[in-house]
C-alpha cells in the first residue's frame, strides 16, 4: 500500500468510501470511492478500480478508473487507457491514451486554467449531441 516514490502520501484504500470536501498537500492515490470535492496544490491519481464523482481542483490529475465531475488542473490531466471520464475538463496539458473514453466539455491550453469555470458548473448531459457547444464568431 505504501508509495515507494513518496509522491502520493495520502491513500484512500480499495475498501474505503469518502464523502465530502477533501484537501491535501502532496498527493492522493484514490483506490476506493470518493464523492464530493477535492482542492489541492498537489497530484491526484484515480486508480483502475477506483470510482470518483467529484469536482477537483489540482495541479495534476491522473485517471485510470471511472470518474464523473468537473476537473481543473493547473498543469496536466492524464487519461490512461482504462479511464472512463464524464465531465468538464480544464487543463494546461491533456494526455489521452488509446482506449480512454471521455465525454464532456474540454478547455485545454496554456491559458485555460486561468479562465477556468466555476466549481458549480452544470454537468454535461450525456444525451447532448456534438455540434451544440462550438463557439462561432
Amino acid at each position: 500500500m505504501a508509495d515507494p516514490t513518496g509522491e502520493f502520501t495520502t491513500v484512500i484504500g480499495p475498501d474505503a468510501k469518502f464523502e465530502g470536501k477533501l484537501s491535501f498537500e502532496k498527493g492522493l492515490r484514490l483506490q476506493g470511492q470518493l464523492n464530493g470535492e477535492i482542492s489541492t496544490a498537489g497530484k491526484l491519481q484515480v486508480t483502475k478500480e477506483a470510482q470518483m464523482d467529484a469536482n477537483v481542483d489540482a495541479s495534476a490529475i491522473i485517471i485510470e478508473g471511472k470518474v464523473k465531475g468537473n476537473l481543473s488542473a493547473t498543469d496536466r490531466i492524464e487519461l490512461k487507457s482504462s479511464a472512463r471520464y464524464e465531465g468538464n475538463l480544464t487543463a494546461s496539458k491533456l494526455v489521452v491514451e488509446e482506449g480512454a473514453v471521455f465525454v464532456g466539455q474540454v478547455s485545454v491550453g496554456p491559458d485555460a486554467p486561468k479562465g477556468k469555470p466555476s466549481a458549480g458548473i452544470a454537468r454535461p448531459n450525456p444525451a447532448a449531441q456534438p455540434g451544440q457547444g462550438a463557439p462561432r464568431t
Partner: peptide
Amino acid sequence: GAVLHGFYRIG
C-alpha cells in the same frame, strides 16, 4: 501547448 475548446466524445 495545443489549445482545445469544445465538447469532446472520445472512445
